[in-house]
Nucleic acid binder design. Structure first.
Lengths: 348, 348
DNA sequence: ATTTAGCACTCAAAGAGTTAGAGTGCTAAC
DNA sequence: GTTAGCACTCTAACTCTTTGAGTGCTAAAT
């Protein structure tokens, strides 16, 4: 692989991203930093096509990058743009500050990304998993009717109504509440394993079978907590993008299967995945640009965009990187504000 | 307006709904109960177009009903189909019985409607408004951090985290909890007026200004409660419906603005509204078919579908009517099961 | 040994022209 | 008032042609 060939590949990608039309040898030869004739470029382009980096929609058309071509471009050839300072300021304002709730922080970042990229933005919020359970309450609210309340240190609150077969005496309820509180209080949501909950089900059932709906309710609630929340915003942008198949986009909007896992399993750092490369997430010509943000050094969630493969990587990647870094920073500086002391208070 | 013209209008709507193609005079003349020639029909159709009930996509095409045409058809001309008995049985099974929670009841109805109509189903659940507040709790969960919990007799639970400027002593918290409990417990959600809450804000603030975030939180929660819950299910069906503009549908899916008010302000009984007729809810060629269900004689919520204007009203309207009636019946017979005794139990 | 100019060739996209057919409006007869 | 008949209209589908961007190859130039 020739130095010049790489330069030409980069030029083809840049041109194609800019114009959206297949790129011909002539238009490349006219570029500033290219000083060979179109014939030479034709030869090189033919070679690049041989190698699988470019392809022709039809014989007499210019070349278009293949996803292998994009891959090489992104990994090696591209020179990312800098984000102008005034733009950074604007982003910082959009995001929020130390006092902005974490959920809103990532939400704002998503909004910013949709606006900048005109693509769908995707965020996961795995923050709840880092928190510990700070409170479990079972509150009787009526005849045989109870509400289970689960509160985490990060302020996440889940509740669920439960109907029992029988009414519980104060003693029974007390027993149950204490047992649960003892076993779950202070446990990190991450550690809430199946076994642990199974053990509790067994123990409580042994004491009194009628309590099992309550335990089941708690299991369901902790299930909820463990699940990282995936939000896709601005997905309508994908519909007006004619590189993507409308039907596939619609299917994606309906159920975002696979995406959640894909994000969960991603490495840290910025990442670009193409629809073609993995079948779990199947919008044909799409590209997913994500990065993970961190909280207290641990990966806490992902942030990125879904768009067509023909997207301005030079421009967008720095934005995704900047936003994830900023979010990580804001979440870290926020840490001393987070309450990790579930036992400090007693219910009145 | 001639008897025959009305008959022709009805025939045009029926044919158009059936085929999806503009309807010509010839195809109408071939119909069983029409015994005039196509020329006569042409004359009548021209008249109907003059009157605004029909329109032509272009000069040499058949006619299509305008929304004014649909309106007349629905209000006066249409003969609704009967639902077959076995179908009714199937619906009854899908819905649930006396023991099915109300929320699930309407949810099931929505699912049934999506399945039958291949349109999006929309339900509102105003049931919470009929219930009384059975419990208010303020639970400390960390440094200056409190969770407010509002539970209604119908099992509705709302919560909200609140951060205060200072830590509360047990006494302060007790005072507050008691005050709130005393004032709100047993109050029906419907009666939760602005004034009432304002009075509380004033009273509490007089005692201690720092408590006002809590009162504010409670106000917001009761606001939530009063707001009827709107659920749209199967909205993906609208995307595969080519009469509707995809972009508008996506926008609608993302934020269902206006729909809630539209439903709230609707009269009782079955109702059909067209996207064109009201701008608050703006999917171009859409039609909204809803009816209200009742609980204990009072309107409790709405149930219906959103689809293209070209939808089988003859078939769908009876389904919507049947389901709302059934739900009303189930909710009424369910009434003695509802817990209206918030004071029966004490927190442990 | 590359690089380049030149040229014949290819192919999609756009435009022009044609046809087919469904449907209309009007007129004159019933 | 209704109907048959006919000329007219307009779209959708099809073919034919043209255009031009772009290619690959060859032979000359560096």
């Amino acid at each position: 692989m020739d130095e010049r060939k790489l330069k030409i590949l980069a030029a083809v990608v840049d041109e194609y991203v800019r114009t959206g039309e297949p790129v011909g040898s002539k238009s490349i030869s006219k570029l500033e930093n290219i000083n060979v004739s179109s014939a030479t470029i034709r030869n090189d382009m033919a070679a690049l096509e041989q190698l699988g980096y470019l392809e022709q929609p039809h014989t007499s058309a210019g070349r278009v990058p293949t996803f292998k071509g994009y891959r090489l471009y992104i990994d090696e050839l591209m020179t990312p743009h800098d984000i102008p300072d005034e733009e950074k300021i604007r982003l910082d304002e959009m995001l929020g500050d130390r006092n902005t709730p974490e959920e809103l922080l990532v939400q704002n970042a998503a909004t910013a990304l949709t606006e900048i990229t005109q693509c769908a933005a995707v965020v996961t919020n795995a923050v709840p998993r880092f928190s510990v359970i700070s409170k479990v309450e079972v509150i009787p609210t009526g005849k045989r009717l109870y509400v289970i309340l689960l509160i985490t240190s990060s302020g996440n609150i889940k509740n669920k109504a439960c109907r029992l077969e029988i009414d519980l005496s104060h003693e029974q309820l007390d027993f149950f509440t204490h047992y649960i509180e003892e076993n779950l209080s202070g446990v990190s949501v991450d550690e809430l394993s199946e076994e642990m909950l199974d053990k509790m089900v067994a123990a409580v059932s042994a004491y009194m079978v009628s309590l099992s709906p309550l335990v089941k309710g708690i299991c369901e609630l902790s299930e909820d907590l463990r699940q990282q929340e995936l939000t896709v915003s601005g997905s309508e942008k994908l519909l007006s993008c004619d590189e993507l198949d409308k039907m596939e986009v619609v299917k994606f909007i309906e159920h975002k299967d696979g995406l959640s896992e894909l994000l969960e399993n991603a490495f840290s750092g910025i990442q670009v995945k193409f629809g073609a490369e993995n079948d779990s997430f199947a919008i044909g010509n799409s590209s997913l640009i994500v990065s993970k943000y961190r909280k207290g050094g641990k990966e806490a969630g992902s942030l990125g965009i879904i768009g067509p493969m023909r997207v301005d990587y030079k421009k967008i990647i720095p934005y995704v990187e900047y936003l994830t870094q900023k979010i990580s920073a804001l979440m870290d500086s926020d840490e001393d504000d987070i309450i990790n002391a579930p036992d400090e208070f007693q219910a009145p």
